[in-house]
């Protein structure tokens, strides 16, 4: 039986939450579970094109541990999930409008499938399970 799609709303800019969202999304995607990720609010800032890992992530205790341990980079985990499984990543259209950003020019190259409105994401999410970070 096919797994229910997993819908992830990522809105926190905290490294720990972005990391866990990336872990959940990538592992679900490579486990034959379709995944859709909606990136909004401060989380979008971590995906700004051209940022280094040091500039991208901010957080607390585990953020400091991530920096010194060999923990997979969150953005790379999302990329692996897309490459090896079925995953779509959407950028919140409202946040893009507020920042005057475009997916194709301001966000991590090749990761985003495009901008998406909240109502569309929520409508799609009725077909599966929704979790928020």
């Amino acid at each position: 039986m096919a797994s229910k799609p997993l819908f992830i709303m990522l809105c926190s800019g905290e490294h720990e939450k972005i990391q866990l969202a990336a872990m959940v999304a990538s592992v679900a995607a490579v486990s034959d579970r379709p995944v859709e990720v909606f990136v909004s609010m401060n989380a979008v800032l971590a995906f700004e094109r051209g940022k280094t890992a040091a500039e991208r992530y901010h957080g607390g205790h585990f953020h400091e541990l991530f920096k010194t341990a060999k923990v997979p980079d969150a953005v790379e985990l999302f990329e692996q999930g897309k490459l090896l499984g079925e995953m779509k990543v959407w950028a919140c259209s409202m946040v893009l409008d507020l920042k005057h950003w475009e997916c194709d020019t301001h966000l991590t190259e090749g990761l985003f499938d495009g901008p998406l409105g909240l109502a569309k994401f929520l409508s799609d999410a009725e077909a599966g399970e929704l979790i928020t970070f």
């Binding site: 872990m23 592992v27 997979p72 985990l77």
Partner: peptide, 11 residues
Amino acid sequence: AFCPGPLMELI
């Protein structure tokens, strides 16, 4: 490598 690194490398 930390989770889920080994699994992703296997896949």
